[in-house]
Computed example of a mutant assay.
Amino acid sequence: MAAQPLTVLVIGATGSIGRLVVAEALARGHTVRALVRDRAKGAQLLPADAELVVGDVIRPETLPEAVAGADAIVLTLGSFGTGASSPETVDYAGVRNVLTALGAQEGARPRVALMTSIGATTRGSGYGRLLEWKRRSERLVRASGLTYTIVRPGWFDMNGPDEHRLVFLQGDRRRSGGPADGRVARADIARVLVAALTAPEAAGRTFELVAEQGAAPGDLGPLFAALDPDPPGSLDAVRDEANMPLDAEPRRVRDDLDAVN
Rank of each mutant, 00 (worst) to 15 (best):
A43L: 07
E208P: 00
S234N: 03
L146W: 10
L9C: 12
G204S: 14
S176F: 08
T116G: 03
D38G: 04
R123M: 12
S16P: 00
G182S: 05
R205W: 04
T31D: 08
T122S: 04
G29P: 08
R136E: 03
A259R: 07
L166C: 02
R129F: 08
R111T: 11
A70W: 12
A187Y: 10
T122H: 06
H30R: 09
P200L: 09
V74C: 10
L130E: 08
V141Y: 10
R251I: 13
A180E: 14
D162P: 13
M1N: 09
R251G: 10
V67I: 11
T116M: 00
I11N: 05
V210K: 04
A40K: 14
G42N: 08
D157F: 12
R19F: 13
S234D: 14
R239N: 07
D219F: 15
R123D: 04
W155Q: 07
I118D: 00
L130M: 06
S86N: 07
A226R: 11
A211Q: 01
N261H: 11
P245D: 14
A195I: 02
G182H: 10
A104I: 12
Y92C: 05
R205E: 02
P60N: 12
E61P: 09
A202L: 01
R28Q: 15
L140D: 09
P179K: 13
P232V: 02
V54K: 15
S144Q: 11
L45D: 07
